[in-house]
């Protein structure tokens, strides 16, 4: 720490070159950062490549290459045992052939509904839970926090199976519980009815993942300094007012992140539907989302042989949709969001 003082002295001496040298020397001793800068004039910065290599190689091998190859695969078709380049023909089939496009738009529509239920149910409840949990006078907060978060770490298969049993009209506890409060008439075999199945599954997924927005918002709420809230209190903003006027604006960036995570997660969803309804996403494709549609097409199902090329085209469309959504968020929403320095 004595060096800056010396450089000050150097300026005093009005010796520019000595000043530069001194700076160099100072930073070399203090941070070591410009050593690299200094050295770079003489030899190539090989070490950067060396340090980046593991991450770049692994990421390329497991993410970039498969992604690019999937997109490439979508441009081919198998005709008489031969793989033939067919350009965008698969996409044309997917969007304009009535048999394919009907399934595609159905799946996309279901996907949007799935996402909407999450945005309207999961995230508001998650925020509310976080707000309640961060209340300083709440007892057993840690217990509630863990209890609500636990479903998130369960496997989809377990969640799907457990809920199927709970809602089962034959063995499930849902009908008998409703019966106990005299509301048996409200019970329906939800997972087996076209009009309810998708919403039921979306709510099961909300149940499972509500811990994620809760934890993220909880962390954001905890990071709000007490001084700000106290300053607000002095100005007469307390209770709910403090939440709406002080805390909510401060956690908006976190809510943005949660929205985009929900979007990506929902448009990539597959597991829960597959585990509980199978690859045909019954009843009558009412729970079919892009993930199950892609799986069925790519790997085949029962007597239907797999078609990797059409499957890749669907995967490509999913990729484009997610990319578009993320871009809209990044450029349309995030850049305009006001951030506060805490």
């Amino acid at each position: 720490m004595s060096r800056p003082l010396q450089t000050g002295k150097a300026i005093h001496a009005n010796d520019v070159s000595a000043f530069a040298q001194d700076i160099n020397e100072a930073s070399r001793l203090e941070t070591g950062k410009s050593v690299q800068k200094h050295a770079s004039r003489r030899r190539p910065r090989l070490h950067i490549a060396v340090f980046l290599a593991p991450a770049v190689l692994i990421y390329t091998a497991v993410m970039i290459f498969p992604l690019a190859n999937t997109l490439r695969l979508a441009l081919y078709s198998r005709i008489d045992q031969e793989r033939v380049f067919t350009g965008l023909a698969n996409f044309q089939t997917l969007f304009f052939d009535p048999i394919w496009s009907e399934q595609f738009w159905n799946a996309l529509g279901n996907n949007f509904w799935f996402f909407l239920v999450h945005m309207l149910v999961q995230n508001p409840i998650g925020i509310a839970l976080a707000a309640i949990l961060s209340h300083p006078r709440l007892r057993f907060a840690a217990l509630y926090r863990s209890a609500i978060f636990i479903p998130t770490i369960l496997s989809f298969v377990i969640v799907g199976f457990a809920w199927k049993l709970i809602l089962s009209p034959i063995w499930g506890i849902a009908p008998s519980m409703l019966d106990a409060v005299g509301l048996k008439s409200l019970f329906a075999p939800w997972l087996g009815k076209e009009e309810y199945a998708l919403t039921t599954l979306a709510l099961i997924s909300v149940w499972q993942f509500i811990g994620i927005p809760m934890m993220l918002i909880y962390a954001a709420l905890l990071s709000i300094p007490e001084e700000i809230l106290e300053a607000g209190e002095v100005d007469g903003i307390t209770g709910m007012g403090a939440f709406w006027k002080i805390k909510l604006p401060l956690i908006l960036p976190s809510i943005g992140i949660i929205s985009i995570l929900t979007f990506v997660g929902n448009f990539n969803a597959f597991d829960l539907i597959y585990a509980s309804q199978g690859a045909l996403a019954g009843p009558d494709f009412s729970t079919d989302i892009l993930g199950t549609f892609m799986y069925r097409t790519f790997f085949g199902f029962q007597l239907q042989l797999g078609d990797p090329h059409m499957g890749s085209a669907i995967a490509g469309a999913m990729f484009a949709i997610i990319l578009l959504g993320v871009c809209i968020y990044l450029f349309g929403v995030q850049t305009r969001m006001r951030r506060y320095q805490l």
Partner: peptide
């Protein structure tokens, strides 16, 4: 087919 057959699975039927 019994109540709620719409949501009855194959193992359910076997067990019933």
């Amino acid at each position: 087919l019994g109540d709620g057959y719409e949501a009855q699975t194959y193992p359910d039927s076997q067990n019933l």
